[in-house]
Simulated scan of single mutants.
Amino acid sequence: ISYCNWLSEKEGLPPAYDELGKLLDCDGSHTTDLRRVAGYRLPTEAEWEYAARGGNKSRDYIFAGSNDVDEVAWYIENSSDRTREVGLKSPNELGLYDMSGNVWELCSDNSDRYSEGLEINPYGETGVFKILRGGSVREDREEVTISARDLTGERYTNSSIGFRIAKTVLVDGGEQ
């Protein structure tokens, strides 16, 4: 969150988070509407999964970019329990690297379960845990699939947890 705010301010954008980690809109007010967040932020769990699956170019792979785990992921069987520089394995359909394995990736959602109904890019702030996606070098092949998820305490850190950033992009007509 600190990195996202630092990068936002460096690029002349409003910060995406307040000091407690709550989302801010472009005017500095609290929001849960991601379309109103102008700065860099952590992706929601739904955004993360959409990107890992290859977006609208998805080929329905089990892992991010392949059905062969060794082609796209660092995990317990090939990592020697150490993370690697991003980009050494093949990317997924969108050209994104290491969305399976290497490190668990922190999502912005504070929730511990999926909702019952169909939603488009839900943003959860109801749980006490942060969502982790993608698996790490310490996991077996089942835990580095696109659908694998875990939870962590909001302030817990270790060498198998990382993050990637997202930014809302407005296109013609104001849609994201």
Rank of each mutant, 00 (worst) to 15 (best):
S2A: 15
C4Q: 00
C4E: 07
C4V: 04
W6G: 10
S8D: 13
E11T: 00
P15D: 08
P15W: 03
D18A: 07
E19Y: 02
G21H: 06
L23W: 09
D27L: 09
D27A: 02
T32F: 01
V37Y: 01
R41Q: 11
L42S: 04
E45R: 05
W48S: 06
E49K: 00
E49F: 01
Y50G: 07
A51V: 14
A51K: 00
A51H: 05
K57I: 06
R59W: 00
R59H: 11
R59M: 05
D60N: 15
Y61C: 11
F63E: 15
S66E: 13
S66K: 13
D70V: 11
E71A: 15
E71K: 12
V72A: 05
Y75F: 09
I76K: 10
I76W: 01
E77W: 03
N78Q: 05
R82F: 09
T83V: 12
R84S: 11
R84E: 15
V86P: 15
N92D: 04
N92E: 10
E93T: 15
G95V: 08
L96F: 07
Y97T: 04
N102R: 05
W104V: 01
E105G: 04
S108L: 10
N110L: 13
S111T: 05
S111Q: 12
S111R: 11
R113N: 12
Y114G: 10
N121D: 14
P122I: 03
P122G: 02
E125M: 10
T126L: 08
K130I: 01
I131E: 01
L132D: 03
G134T: 01
G134H: 02
G134W: 05
G135V: 06
S136E: 12
V137Y: 00
R141I: 06
E142P: 07
E143H: 09
V144T: 04
S147E: 11
S147C: 14
D150K: 03
R155L: 02
Y156I: 11
T157R: 10
N158G: 06
S159N: 08
S160C: 14
S160A: 15
I161T: 07
I161N: 05
G162T: 12
G162V: 07
F163N: 09
R164A: 12
R164E: 08
R164W: 08
I165E: 03
I165H: 11
K167V: 14
K167N: 15
K167S: 06
T168D: 05
L170Q: 08
V171F: 13
D172A: 08
G173Q: 12
E175L: 13
Q176M: 13
Q176F: 02
